[in-house]
Nucleic acid binder design. Structure first.
Lengths: 337, 337
DNA sequence: TTGTACGCGTTATCAA
DNA sequence: TTGATAACGCGTACAA
């Protein structure tokens, strides 16, 4: 009981060979008598197959990795909630990598693929460096990237159309009569930050609104940063009458600052977030937010990866999830509750 | 490049034995010339050590498990945020198990310890069955349980004093003049549910308040359940003037219902939650909440486990984290903002 | 139907 | 300093 039982232990106890033990445990045809004795011995010893030995032999780890910058971000959380059960139902364990917005860390995870401790990887890279692309090309296990990857990247890719997402929000703010529409973004050297920044400028232009640089601020993707960036923006452009925030956390920070500054939401300043996370229905007023289909992207990513793990062949696939705007009180007044 | 490089591949390429390769890669003293050739070959081949083979030999997986009922619960999330970096810094990977409030699933995770794919486990059991205790006793790897475990349970245990926590909240509500203090709990057959239920009754008694069964409701630990339970409670006891909720999610649901019912918070009904999660500062009014030190419990659990993994001996340890009340606007009016 | 023996990729022991 | 070789625990040809 104190020593870890192996098939050898069982074989001795049952008086058979290890081959018979292995056969019984793997459900291969065996004489009923032998089977009984093996199963009894296994149960009595509390046997569990050693996963390292099994992996070494089978060349499969039965593990899947999920790499994100920060577990605290509710958008990633929505993904995990979809991914975890799918992965588990398929017989895999989930190894969670939090890379701390650190590109080197992400590369490290990719390098880890070579150690074969995971059979596949879902990754949400914050930045996309040449090194990423190299590692993708050299990877010896299937990878699914969530987020915009350059065309031709040799991995399955689940993206959203954040350009359309931003446009939907800006058009909505314009439609409710706002003309001084500010934008509080995350770092513009990140994949989502860059995309949203460009989309904002484009949307303004399409509506014939001037692109006033005072209306655009950059912070990090967190609440406190959003608050600070909003405060700066308010100082520089006091006449702002609407704020689009690059995610819901930033929007929460914006609400904090606006409230402290005595600006009413949405009457004085309408506020919209992005990602449509759980946060959006917790704030007051509830937050209008662009859904980028986080949950769906997670689900699709898991499905794509599982397909590859089942042997699915073919060229890299790109799935684009359509964004949609969820209007709530922060841009629509009481009646929208 | 297409075949997975092993030390054998390297040995051939460098013209040395696999023993030398292993020595070089493990930093054992080697002649400079040999070392160079091995390292060059390894780099050129893109070698990465096979973790299964390594685990088989070393009897260590370099992985740690974290098992919780639901990743969506922000209290667990606070734990992961502490655990992940500590585990990672110590050279371990984190395997995430979401057990879906399913006891059988939890047992399955414990059984998995025998497969040796994790070197240790941190678990937050929702219920504590005899089977749990059996598995704990038989476990061949260190386990840390977060949450109340019976005395004598042969695992390290990080608990909180939810009895004191509930008392702090009830006393606070009493101190601000409330006398009809309701309680919206989670399932009473769970560890936290049972503890909080008993503590609530006890706290009322200590204050000389009658225990009116109409004031206690039970739902599940989620927002929608909290809302439904609160609605039932309001119907049965319309004169309730304060609500203690067993966690912040439930409290968020309570706020939803109270607002819809036209009850002002805190003027008509004061509301307090438990766990003091991120939610508490997002709601309006901001939520008074009993901090049960989720982050700290996660941190301590990780430290205890890592100590065991480093060979730390000794009897099971019990660490109790002190709760404290964080007063916000939902029980204190505007001035508390 | 069962047992022997080999290999998966590493580490570690023992001679040379 | 180096090389041959034996484990680690399991699955599976192949032979009996």
């Amino acid at each position: 009981m104190t020593e870890e039982p192996t098939i050898t232990t069982i074989a001795q106890r049952a008086g058979v060979s290890i081959a018979s033990v292995s056969r019984v445990l793997n459900g291969l045809p065996t004489r009923a008598d032998t089977e009984r004795r093996v199963l009894d011995a296994a149960r009595e010893l509390g046997y569990a197959p050693n996963s390292a030995a099994r992996s070494l032999k089978s060349r499969r780890s039965n593990q899947v990795g999920f790499a994100i910058a920060d577990i605290g971000n509710p958008a990633y959380l929505a993904m995990i909630r979809e991914i975890q059960p799918l992965i588990k139902a398929a017989g895999y364990r989930l190894v969670l990598h939090s890379t701390d917005t650190d590109t080197a860390d992400e590369i490290e995870v990719l390098r880890g693929l070579g150690e074969r401790y995971i059979d596949g990887l879902i990754m949400v890279p914050l930045r996309m460096t040449p090194e990423h692309l190299e590692m993708f090309a050299a990877a010896r296990a299937p990878i699914v990237v969530i987020g915009g990857a350059p065309d031709g990247t040799p991995v399955d890719n689940v993206r959203t159309d954040s350009r359309t997402g931003v446009r939907l929000a800006v058009e909505h703010l314009h439609a409710i009569g706002r003309r001084r529409i500010g934008f509080v973004n995350g770092p513009t050297d990140t994949v989502p930050g860059a995309a949203r920044s460009a989309a904002y400028a484009e949307a303004l232009a399409a509506l014939g609104l001037p692109h006033d640089p005072r209306l655009a601020e950059v912070g990090d993707f967190y609440r406190a940063d959003g608050a600070r960036a909003t405060a700066r923006l308010l100082r520089r452009a006091p006449d702002v009458d609407a704020l689009l925030c690059a995610n819901d956390l930033i929007a929460a920070g914006a609400l904090d600052v606006l409230r402290a500054a005595g600006r009413r939401v949405p009457e004085d300043v309408a506020v919209a977030g992005m990602d449509d996370t759980d946060l959006a229905t917790l704030t007051w007023p509830a937050l209008t937010s662009v859904s980028l289909g986080s949950a769906e992207r997670g689900r699709v990513a898991a499905e794509l990866l599982l397909d590859r793990l089942r042997g699915g062949e073919g060229p890299p696939r790109v799935v684009t999830v359509r964004p949609h705007l969820v209007v709530r009180a922060s841009t629509a007044g009481e009646e929208a509750r």
